[in-house]
Computed example of a mutant assay.
Amino acid sequence: GVLLGAVDSRGIVSAVKELQDAGIPIGVIIRNIPNAGKIDVTVDPNIFGIGQQAAVNTLNLLFSKYGAYEGAVLEIEGALTDNFSVDSHNGFMDIMEKFPSVTIVSKEATDWSFEKAANIAEDWLTVNPDTDLIYSHSDWLTQALPPVLKRLGYGPAGEENHVFVISSGAMPFGLPHIRTGYIDMITEIPTLKVSKLAAYWLLQIAQGNEIPDEVNLFEPGLSVKMINTKVKVGEKSWGTHISVPPAVVTQKNVDDPNLWGNIYD
């Protein structure tokens, strides 16, 4: 079998179809591949759900500041041709559109360019210095923001001139900014849990076994032991789908040794 982590879920379609024509089982992690017919198993962290969690994080932070669900938010998106960014935005707006007192402006950092993310943040904050929160779709982009915030005179969490920043990933270059207070919350993309689950069930498929309606998750970190916690298996237009729930990282748990960003630091 072949386990794929597609950066470009559209550009890889022809290669996937060649594997399918050859009868080779395929597993996919993180980004689904929606236009290549039925994939044997896709395991992801529910990107739409991560967008929803980002909305919950946003609302909690705004409420902590104002005692109400109100404020001004800048959303920095990745490439809009990437279903990761599309699902992140749609999940975020699925909840945020119910809170009209929160103003949201979305801007695309084309091609996941953190240089463009930095320029977006600097240009926006220069004109809109009272922005309350920035939601960046990934630590890959978010790592560009602390230098901008410092240059413009914004401080870390706990200071009056702080701009809330939330992100997704819990990557090695995201977690340090939680520690310094320039990122407030990161919704983890549980890469290790996703990868272990996908590899296990891809092997089972290659051996002729079927995936049941529920499957056990693996222990966090590098352990290959399963735990009693189960998640449901679903069927999507692109094939069998398993979603692994993420955690929210703050200063309280940023040093958890099982976070993949700490393992590969």
Rank of each mutant, 00 (worst) to 15 (best):
M96R: 00
E97C: 03
K98Q: 05
K98I: 01
F99T: 02
F99W: 05
P100H: 00
P100S: 02
S101A: 10
S101T: 02
V102M: 01
V102N: 01
I104S: 01
I104N: 04
I104R: 02
V105Y: 02
S106Q: 04
S106K: 00
K107A: 12
E108N: 10
E108C: 04
E108W: 13
A109F: 08
T110M: 15
T110E: 15
W112I: 02
W112D: 08
S113E: 12
F114P: 15
E115H: 11
K116E: 15
A118R: 09
A118Q: 11
N119P: 09
A121C: 03
A121F: 02
A121R: 03
L125M: 04
L125Q: 14
L125D: 07
T126E: 03
T126P: 07
V127A: 13
V127D: 15
V127S: 13
N128F: 01
N128G: 03
P129H: 09
P129N: 11
P129M: 07
T131G: 04
T131N: 08
D132A: 05
L133T: 11
I134N: 11
I134G: 14
I134L: 14
Y135F: 11
Y135G: 11
Y135H: 13
Y135L: 10
S138V: 15
S138P: 10
D139F: 09
W140Y: 13
W140R: 12
W140G: 14
W140C: 08
W140D: 14
W140M: 10
W140T: 15
W140P: 04
W140A: 15
L141C: 04
L141N: 04
L141F: 03
T142Q: 11
T142N: 06
T142K: 09
T142Y: 09
Q143T: 10
Q143F: 09
Q143S: 09
